[in-house]
Amino acid sequence: MNTPEFGKMETAWCPGCGNFGILDSLKLALEALGKDPHEVVMVGGIGQAAKTPQYLSANSFCGLHGRALPPAVAIKMANPNLTVIVNTGDGDSYGEGGNHFLHNIRRNVDMTHFVHDNQVYGLTKGQSSPTTLEGMVTGAQAEGSQNIPFNPVLLALAAGAGFVARGFSGKPDHLQMLMERAIRFKGYALVDIFQPCVSFNRLNTFAWYNSRVYELDESHDATDRLMAMSRAMEFGDRIPIGVLYEKALPDFHEKNSSLSQGQVLAGRRNDPALVRRYMSEMV
C-alpha cells in the first residue's frame, strides 16, 4: 500500500505474509495520527518483521538481533520529540531480546513495541520461537516443540506494563485502531500481533487465527489489571484481541530529573563551569 507520507517500497517478504497487513495498518495509523516521517524513528532488530523499518519512509535504526529495545529507549531519551516505534518478531523480542523486554517494561520509556508474532522463526526457516505451540514439529524440534509456550501479554501485565494489547494482521482496521492507541499512549506500549507465516508455520495459519480471535467489547474493563490478566490467559478455541490493559503511569522522562522538562539532549553541551566546580571540589 502506498500512503502520501510514508511511501511504498519493494519488500523481501513472501506473498501472503502477515507482515504486509501489519505494515499497511502501521502506515495508515501514522498518517491518521498526522505524523511527519522526519519525527518518526523506526527501530528493528533482525528477522523478517525487523525489516519493517526498511519498508516505509521514515528514520530507521536497524540494529542487532534481539537488541531493538535498548537503542529505541535511548533514542527517546536523547530526543523526546521523536516518535519511537519498534517492529520486530517474537524471536527477536521474546527470545534473543527477552531480558530487554522484561526490563524495558520496568523502565517505561514512552515508545511503542509492535511484535509480529507468527509463533515461528521465519528468517532462519522455521525453527521454534518462544511462542511456538507444544508439539509443533520443525527442523530443529524434530520430535515437536517440548517447551511451554511463552505468553507475552500475560508477562507484560505481570511485569507492570501500562499498555498491553493483542491484534491480528487479518483484521487491519482493528489493528490500525490498536496501533494508534498504542502510539498515543504515554509510556511503554506492547501490541502483540498475530501474523500467519505462510512458509514455515503450517499450524497457526490465517484460518487458525481467524477462527479463534474475537474482539474485546465493552464488557472488558481495560483499567482492571486482574481482568486483563484473566483475558490474557484465554488462549484456546477463543483468543481475545484488543486493548487488554491501559493505565497511565509516570514514564521514564517524568521521573528523570534531566528529562522531566522536555529537555532534548541531542546536540546539547555540558556547562564548562560545572566541570571546573567539580574539579575544585577535588582539591
Binding site: 535504526f61 535498548p70 537503542p71 533514542i75 536523547a78 530487554h100 534531566s258 541531542a266 546539547r268
Partner: peptide, 27 residues
C-alpha cells in the same frame, strides 16, 4: 545537576546498544 542521563542497564549488551541509540540520535 549536569542534566545528563546516566542509566544502569539490564546487562552490558543493553548498555552499549543504548549508547549507540543515544549517539545515533545526536548525543
Amino acid at each position: 545537576e549536569a542534566g545528563i542521563v546516566v542509566e544502569q542497564a539490564e546487562d552490558e549488551i543493553a548498555a552499549i546498544n543504548m549508547a549507540l541509540g543515544a549517539s545515533y540520535a545526536g548525543t
